[in-house]
Simulated assay, not measured.
Amino acid sequence: MKKILTAFLLLCFTIAFSQEKKPMYWHDIQEFKKQDQQNPPPKDAILLIGSSSFTKWTDVADYFPTKTIINRGFGGSRLTDLNHFAEDLLAPYQPKQIIIYCGENDFADNHQLKAQKVVKRYKAFYKKIRERFPDIEVDYISIKYSPSREKLWPQMKEANKRIAAFMQKEPNAEFIDVTKAMEDANGNVRKDIFVEDMLHFKPEGYQIWTKVMNPYMK
């Protein structure tokens, strides 16, 4: 009986320890794998990779009815998470275009984070994309200026500026600036396109993004 109890406790400890070792968003990635197994992803689709602005855009296909979209936005992911799960986010697919929205949460996670560090994280992920897909279109959507994160706007603006300069020099790459389209007539960020948390979008916010993104969509 004592041996059985010991074995049971050891099993419980092993399970608990293995769960603790799993990185953040591991379960989201497993869900993607499950979806891909049930419905093999189409070739030559537009692959969206990024954080909650994509995660919550669950009806994105309705906004781009003539496009084939694979949405792989997960949680409140950071560029560190995209780099960590790069193999899982890229290997299963054969897209004709990748569009990225990520970086906002990097600053939210660490208010002291410098723009240069975030740009470095982005370049690392971009390099991983190019190692697998050297010739496809790769686009980066500018970090949006969420009203709830106004204190972080200076770093975000600097990061946008640096990433835009980087993408301008890259072949088959574009920086999609959504910031201007999200402003009112006075040049202020429109709060009416956000839900109560002043971070995530109402449908009106996604309608603005759709208009800006459409010319870049393959």
Score class of each variant (00 low, 15 high):
34 K>A: 14
202 K>A: 03
113 L>R: 15
107 F>G: 01
51 S>M: 10
205 G>D: 05
72 R>F: 07
192 D>Q: 09
54 F>G: 01
121 R>T: 02
120 K>D: 13
140 Y>P: 10
109 D>Y: 09
26 W>E: 11
122 Y>M: 09
118 V>Y: 00
127 K>L: 08
201 F>C: 06
39 N>S: 15
142 S>C: 08
107 F>I: 08
135 D>M: 03
155 Q>I: 00
2 K>G: 02
94 Q>P: 02
79 L>N: 12
91 A>I: 01
42 P>Y: 04
41 P>S: 13
163 I>C: 08
170 E>L: 06
191 K>S: 11
88 D>R: 02
150 E>S: 13
186 N>C: 02
20 E>G: 13
63 Y>I: 02
212 V>N: 10
114 K>I: 01
143 I>E: 03
151 K>L: 11
83 N>K: 04
211 K>G: 06
61 A>L: 03
36 D>G: 12
192 D>C: 02
156 M>W: 02
106 D>S: 05
156 M>C: 06
156 M>A: 09
157 K>W: 01
71 N>M: 12
159 A>G: 04
13 F>T: 12
34 K>F: 08
19 Q>P: 01
170 E>H: 03
98 I>V: 14
123 K>F: 00
1 M>D: 11
80 T>K: 11
152 L>A: 06
10 L>I: 13
207 Q>P: 03
159 A>C: 11
167 M>Y: 06
40 P>W: 01
188 N>Y: 04
210 T>Q: 15
